[in-house]
Design a protein around this nucleic acid. Structure first.
Length: 493
RNA sequence: AGCGGGGUAGAGUAGAGGUAACUCACGAGGCUCAUAACCUCGGGACACAGGUUCGAUUCCUGUCCCCGCAACCA
């Protein structure tokens, strides 16, 4: 990922399933995608950045029924929450697709038709064991004493019906060949190895429809592409529908955006990047890729897999009481800073490894805030601007250096490098004492202060991807030669 | 043999075949431009056992332990 290697750049998060409030893990995913999107824009790329909500399926239907609300109203409420999340996180210029959007429904049906016409969808009667928790049919080998090992508290449903199936099994070879020829298709490498091993073990066709009478909340299977007599009797399996959102957001099968942004084979000018959590490895890097192959569309360029976030060494859960909501973190810092969203962005980007699991606690967030934002960049800005304003030293005009580099999507590493520079500027001030020198040798002292201003501006520029508002504020202070009206990041009481 | 990740100072994390780094906490100095901030110095660590190697904490093998892939979940 360096230089102007691409012209069009497409990046998407997964679409979170709207059966609960926005998770901080998703906040991390979209923040990371946002940093990459900003980076690519800075390099002059034409970026299409997508997110949205996944709104169909049995679990959502069940939840809405349980709460006694219209399903549409139920998903509308969640869609608003997730839209709100993109706003408070300062996610820049992102498209938002909902799988209940009309254009998405049409696209999912078109995807189905193409797979069907190409011979990859067939009908069969079968009896199967279905776990509602996983939204997956289970083979006997996948069950543990008749229970889903993943959802032992849910009863396995025995389904004896005629369903449509996707010929996943036919894609073992094509997928393996694809992985072989694209060794960086999945990042990090250990996830690449994992999916390769999974496909090597063999693939089974999976059911991609549900009887409407049992579960009506889904995209109707297009009847003109399928056998008569089947009219409106099936809806799509939620994964088949949801995965299509990555192209429906581009207006596929119509629209210029699709031809413009979705990677074409052999066209190095385009990149299609998908961010997702590690639970999505199979869906994104195997199922979805097989669907693309089946419908004759180009594959994605790269899948970036995030780790999970625990809190206090444990999975966040309401019963344990260690859930940290992105909204709450931002709320918590509103009193001490005008940039609470940057606090959350900072913590998620700086304190969590780019690809491994990470841990977050309220105490840890506060510690990181105090060390790096309040005592670090915030204090540094104050001390330098104080010297500059009281000695009337203006910064030199400086070409906006885009001396930022992100290698292999390792945002954590890149941000840490920038933070290290803050410390070295503090050290410069302590060692050279410009505040003292300026009193005895004005010219020399002012030169030193100018040097500090330049260094600060460089750091601020490099922080722009990560902490956009903070960065802009610092640059504003330098340009207008003024102190921040109040500390950038006030001390916690 | 289910899949995958991990065990590094008191705590949380980096890192890498050859002086083990950072944040917090702790001890001793310094500075006064700054948000009781900042700088310097110091104490203190690579789970265990084999192997490969001139040399491993890093690579390999085994053992022990922890975590995720379940539930409200990305």
């Amino acid at each position: 990922m360096k230089g102007n290697d691409t012209k069009q750049f497409y990046i998407t998060t997964t679409l979170p399933y709207v059966n609960s409030d926005p998770h901080i893990g998703f906040a991390m995913e979209i923040i990371r995608a946002d940093v990459i999107a900003r980076y690519k824009r800075l390099l002059g790329n034409d970026v299409f950045f997508n997110t949205g909500t996944d709104e169909h399926g049995a679990k959502i239907y069940e939840n809405a029924v349980k709460e006694g609300v219209e399903v549409q109203a139920y998903v509308d409420g969640y869609a608003e929450k997730f839209k709100e999340l993109t706003k408070i996180l300062n996610i820049q210029d992102v498209r938002f697709i909902r799988t209940t959007d009309e254009k998405h429904v049409k696209a999912a049906q078109e995807m189905w038709k193409r797979c069907y016409d190409n011979g990859y969808i067939y009908k069969k009667t079968y009896q199967t064991k279905y776990c509602v928790g996983c939204e997956l049919t289970k083979t006997d080998s996948e069950l543990d004493h008749g229970k889903c090992p993943i959802h032992p508290n849910r009863e396995i449903e025995l389904i004896d019906e005629e369903n449509y199936f996707f010929k996943f099994s036919e894609f073992q070879k094509p997928l393996l060949e694809f992985y072989q020829s694209h060794p960086d298709f999945v990042v990090p490498d250990f996830r690449y190895n994992e999916i390769k091993a999974f496909v090597e073990r063999g693939l089974e066709d999976f059911s991609i429809s549900r009887l409407k009478e049992k579960m009506p909340w889904g995209v109707p299977v297009p009847n003109d592409a399928c056998d008569k007599g089947d009219e409106n009797s099936h809806v799509m399996y939620v994964w088949f529908d949801a995965l299509t959102s990555y192209v429906s957001t581009l207006g596929w099968p119509n629209g210029d955006d699709f031809t413009k942004y979705w990677a074409q084979d052999g066209n190095d000018n385009r990149k299609v990047i998908q961010y997702c959590g590690k639970d999505n490895l199979r869906q994104q890097s195997a199922m979805w890729q097989a669907m693309l192959m089946a419908s004759g569309l180009p594959n994605s360029s790269q899948i970036i897999i995030d780790g999970f976030i625990t809190s206090g060494g444990q999975k966040m859960s309401k019963s344990v009481g260690n859930v940290i909501s992105p909204f709450d973190v931002i709320e918590m810092f509103k009193e001490v800073t005008d940039y609470p969203e940057d606090v959350l962005r900072f913590v998620l980007l700086h304190d969590i490894s780019s690809f491994e699991d990470g841990d977050i606690t309220i105490e840890g967030i506060k510690e990181s805030y105090q060390a790096h934002l309040a005592n670090g960049i915030g204090n540094l800005t104050s001390r330098i601007m104080k010297m500059a304003t009281s000695n009337e030293v203006r910064s030199k005009e400086q070409e906006v250096s885009s001396k930022v580099e992100i290698v292999d999507f390792d945002l954590n590493h890149s941000l840490k490098k920038i933070i290290e520079e803050i410390s070295s500027i503090d050290e410069y001030i302590a060692t050279n004492e410009p505040f003292k020198v300026v009193k005895v040798d004005e010219v020399k002292g002012k030169e030193m202060i100018v040097h500090c201003l330049s260094s600060l501006e460089l750091v601020a520029n490099r922080l722009a991807l990560y902490l956009p508002n903070t960065s802009a504020k610092i640059i504003e202070c330098i340009r207008e030669n003024k102190m921040p009206e109040k500390p950038l990041f006030g001390r916690l009481s």
